[in-house]
Simulated scan of single mutants.
Amino acid sequence: MSGSASASGQTGVSDGFDPSADANPDSRRKNDHIRLALAQQQVPKRNAFDDLRFVHHSLRAVDQSQVSLATRVCGSDWPLPFYINAMTGGSAEAGRINAQLAQAAAATGLAMATGSQHAALRRPELEPTFTTVRKQNPSGFVFANVGPTVSPGQAVRAVEMLAASALQVHINPVQEAVMTEGDRDFGSWPARIQAIVAASPVPVVVKEVGFGLSRPTIERLASLGVRTVDVSGRGGTDFAVIENERRADRAYWYMDSWGLSTVLSLLTAGWPEPVAGVELLASGGVRSPLDVVKALALGARAVGVSGHFLATLNERGTNGLIDEIREWSVQVRALMSLLGARTVADLTASDLLLTGPTAEEARLLGVPLESLARRSARA
């Protein structure tokens, strides 16, 4: 990533990552992902969060001093209801980015996830590009990250590599299908996820990678023992587009915008009632504190941010990202105050208006939009 976050300084990180290791296919792919993800951030785009608006009630605002941003995820208390979601690892450049993201997480109390650790499980020399996260953030909440193709033993090894607080298992069949070197055997994934959940010494979060989780998928995951999911919907970094750009033939040009949006995934997960026993996280297309608050209002316990924070790091360095996270915290508190929400849970009683294409999709999936607009009356 030429002119990237690592070039902006302000970190004091002595990386020690060997760029000669980047000649391997895993590292080249990781660097491609960083470059193409940043390119997508340069083109602002509308997404389903823009179809969602709060109903304004002028006399329901509360003092900002009465607002708590705390939330509880995977049995742990977090001071903030958003986090740095999975991005990268597995190359020298990715290692430097992980070190800087971890510094920002440590300075702000934010939870953080690494990118997929498959490269390090295959190539031990790449482990430092992931373990730097724990080195830079020794006491923070850190997610390890694997896909369902690893064995239970490898999943445990990924957790141990980071002394992780929880484990993300990413499910990405769309990305794999477009990727030239991707997996093509998806039928075993449910059984593999179940085995990973049983073996993991820490809570497991199953997440999509930007294509959304349908309600039947969440229900299936619950039957496999999964207790936390990140719906990670359409609207942000598009890995179908990224993998198509990596192909010489660009054969999957028509896959742009495949999947369910984050808003639609959250709506269907919560209606007509929440999927029993499953806590929701949300990511995908989160561009602002307002998007964070909208996702929380739709039932997410916390909201993951990837592309926006990566772009901020690239443009402004570690200190700039720290400043951005702190400003987001101030603005999330202000928005909750305006909505009369003293806690994150209170946001689920706020009135919401859904319009546009997302409203039509939601109707087709049975979401009662009029009830969504009158939630405060029921509360």
Rank of each mutant, 00 (worst) to 15 (best):
M1V: 07
S2Y: 03
S4D: 13
S6N: 10
S8Q: 13
G9S: 10
Q10A: 14
V13Q: 04
P25R: 09
S27D: 06
R35W: 13
Q41C: 13
V43H: 15
R46S: 14
A48P: 01
A48R: 00
D51F: 00
L52M: 09
R53M: 08
V55G: 11
L59V: 12
D63G: 14
D63Y: 07
A70W: 01
C74H: 09
D77Q: 04
P79D: 15
L80F: 08
P81H: 04
I84L: 07
I84D: 00
A86T: 10
T88D: 02
S91W: 04
I97N: 05
Q103I: 11
A105G: 04
A106D: 07
A106C: 12
T108S: 08
G115E: 06
S116C: 10
H118N: 10
A119E: 01
L121P: 06
R123I: 08
K135Y: 15
G140M: 07
A144E: 00
A144V: 07
N145E: 06
N145M: 08
V146L: 15
P148T: 11
R157V: 07
A158W: 11
A163W: 15
A163T: 11
A164C: 07
H170S: 12
D183R: 01
D185P: 00
G187I: 09
S188L: 12
S188P: 09
P190F: 10
R192M: 13
Q194M: 10
A195L: 01
I196G: 01
I196E: 00
A199E: 07
P201Q: 14
P203Y: 02
V205F: 00
V206P: 09
V209R: 03
G210K: 02
R215I: 12
R220H: 15
V226Y: 08
D230Q: 09
D230I: 05
S232M: 03
G233H: 06
G233C: 14
R234H: 13
T237K: 07
V241A: 03
I242Q: 00
I242M: 00
A248I: 06
M255Q: 14
W258V: 02
S265E: 01
G270Y: 11
V275T: 04
A282C: 06
S288M: 09
K294N: 13
G304W: 01
V305F: 01
S306H: 06
L310M: 13
A311K: 01
N314R: 05
E315I: 00
N319Q: 15
G320C: 14
L321E: 02
L321G: 03
D323V: 08
I325H: 03
R326C: 11
R326E: 13
E327I: 07
V330W: 05
S337L: 10
A345W: 00
S350M: 08
L354W: 04
P357V: 15
E361V: 11
G366V: 13
R378F: 12
